[in-house]
Design a protein around this nucleic acid. Structure first.
Lengths: 343, 343
DNA sequence: TATTTAATTTAACGCGCGTAAATTAATATC
DNA sequence: GATATTAATTTACGCGCGTTAAATTAAATA
């Protein structure tokens, strides 16, 4: 019953009756050995539970099967969700994902990259903090390790960027809001941690002007990643001080909108597109919780799966080719209008 | 400007003028060498950026500085939050946290433990899936690796358990609800993934009976970790079918409550403790989003920081002592009533 | 059956570090 | 200043596996 303990490849070699180099070959690529020897090995594998020592394997490799995934803030379900998808794809590609969160802290972001360096990852997918990131350090890292930048685009960071088309996404939401009611006022953080926010502001202004509308922006004070709280506090203030010139609020992201909805509810405002509603509210991101807000949040969705898929594909290609791409390619995926009850 | 490249400890030894074994000693414990030699090493460390190869280090160690953290579902902000705290403590203890999520999948849970085995972690903190977990396999793992079980208690898994006092927490909420209005009906999943739910049901029934009340339970159908959705769908159904015999609903957890609130809102029910409200709703967990629901959710909080702290302490003690504790100790931390607007 | 080709075996070295024993040097104690 | 103590150095081996070259064997082809 009790399987014999096999301590190393040497022992497994004699146990299976296959020479050690061949066993080694098998573990690197099971198809690289003859079918008959493969059977011998796999039969032996069933009778004892030997597994190669991962440290010894990686010691001589310049490149391991490790794969780093760095996100700025894992407690944000948005990043948890996209990380989950990426993890799955990475595993399917035969690599070992290592998920790291920077927890909103630029020093920890550097620490994470430092930790990744040690484990010589084959590739890295990096969603940087953004404004707070130490750009020089990130660039230095990307020069050494095949890295693709995703979610938050920082020029020069990573050998490619895969992300969300903020321009298009902002535009379709504005178009929808314009044709279905009063023009939207943009509600955002004055100093957002994430660069997508800036893209969205610019896109808002551009689109509004192109439509002959007067762009209006209400900015929330506050720093950091406690975005719902900022949306709540500043939303409450903005409503109280009557800062919104129309009945339509387009929040820069869903977390801000979640806080805003909470404030509006507390102030007794009805939100929605019915006649008896005081305000329409829209968000941006299709945050996992946006379908459970009160009312459910009309928003514009990232193409989560496409972004995850393309990101992984791009790094894998990078790894395979072993070349430095001559230019940093940028891939953006269009957003999709998610019609719910809030606007 | 360009720092000389130092490839290994040998080279660093001659670079710094300190013998290799001493350098090795330094990297294992900087205080174990004489202050003067320590200075020599650290000065050299500034002039070149050598760092020991982590794979070579761990190859000879039976025990690494790796530390595993396994949670059942990282996309749940509750687990993200507690994982974040644990990570911080583990880093402070000089260990390298490896955070793994089972994504609600029992096979992945085993895969995670398998992956952890390979990296010979000094210790592991394991929050199991619960009902779906392969208990035998978990036990086998815990026999080999110093593991402390947290959050979801599975008898026999881990050498200690640290968690939330579901009995006490349930009781204080029921007491509050009883003295402030109608008796609570318990709303839960019929087949909850997490064993805490069962504890809470039992505690609900016990407390109600001790108070001379008639316990009433409404059970939601549905499997898996999409708990908000289940809360929404089944909450909507239960309200429509008039299954609640009083105006007070005590949800088994906040995620269920979040879904329930969304359903109630959609059905036009006012939630809260005012006279004009149709329903009072309470939750359990103090989920990060519970303060942004509409209305804000009255709930009972985990002592997040105490649980995180004690969990880490317990594993560290286990690691240090290198002994198998004669009995599996269970530590529970009391919950705290979080009064908000929903009940 | 002879020949070519492919796979396996044997033997041996290297990776970067941990670690132990014996020796030497630097401090601390009297 | 002599001795005892502590720390550093020298030397050497081992960890488990990758990898390579030459020798051998097995399979595929003619």
């Amino acid at each position: 019953m009790t399987k014999p303990r096999v301590r190393n490849m040497e022992e497994f070699s004699s146990f299976s009756g296959v020479s050690r180099p061949t066993v080694s070959k098998y573990f690197n690529d099971a198809d690289s050995v003859r079918a008959s020897t493969r059977q011998k090995i796999e039969k032996a594998l069933e009778q004892c539970d030997y597994r190669p020592n991962i440290f010894a394997i990686n010691q001589n490799r310049k490149l391991t099967k490790n794969f780093g995934i760095v996100v700025p803030y894992l407690a944000d379900p948005f990043f948890a969700e996209i990380a989950r998808r990426i993890e799955t794809l990475v595993i399917a590609a035969g690599l070992r994902p290592i998920l790291l969160s920077s927890h909103g802290d630029p020093e920890l972001e550097l620490g994470n990259l430092d930790a990744l360096r040690l484990i010589k990852p084959a590739g890295v997918l990096l969603a940087p903090l953004g404004r707070a990131s130490n750009r020089m350090a990130l660039e230095a890292f990307c020069a050494d390790v095949p890295t693709v930048n995703f979610d938050a685009n920082i020029e020069g960071v990573g050998r490619a960027f895969v992300g969300h088309n903020n321009d298009q996404a902002t535009e379709i939401m504005i178009e929808y809001l314009l044709r279905s009611g009063e023009p939207p006022v943009f509600f955002e953080m004055r100093t957002p941690p994430n660069p997508n926010a800036n893209k969205r502001r610019v896109a808002y202004i551009d689109t509004m002007e192109r439509r002959g509308q007067n762009p209006q922006i209400v900015q929330a004070e506050g720093e950091g990643w406690k975005i719902e709280e900022i949306g709540y506090r500043e939303g409450r203030r903005a409503i109280s001080e009557n800062l919104f010139s129309t009945n339509t609020v387009f929040c820069s992201n869903d977390r801000l909108a979640i806080g805003f909805l909470s404030a509006a509810y507390e102030l007794g405002l009805r939100i929605g597109r019915n006649d008896d509603c005081a305000l329409r509210v829209a968000g941006h991101d299709n945050h996992p919780f946006s379908r459970y807000t009160c009312p459910t949040l009309t928003t514009v969705s990232h193409d989560y799966s496409a972004i995850a898929q393309r990101s992984v594909e791009t790094v894998l290609k990078l790894i395979e080719s072993e070349t430095f791409p001559s230019q940093r390619e940028t891939t953006l995926f269009d957003g999709e209008l998610i019609m719910r009850a809030s606007a």
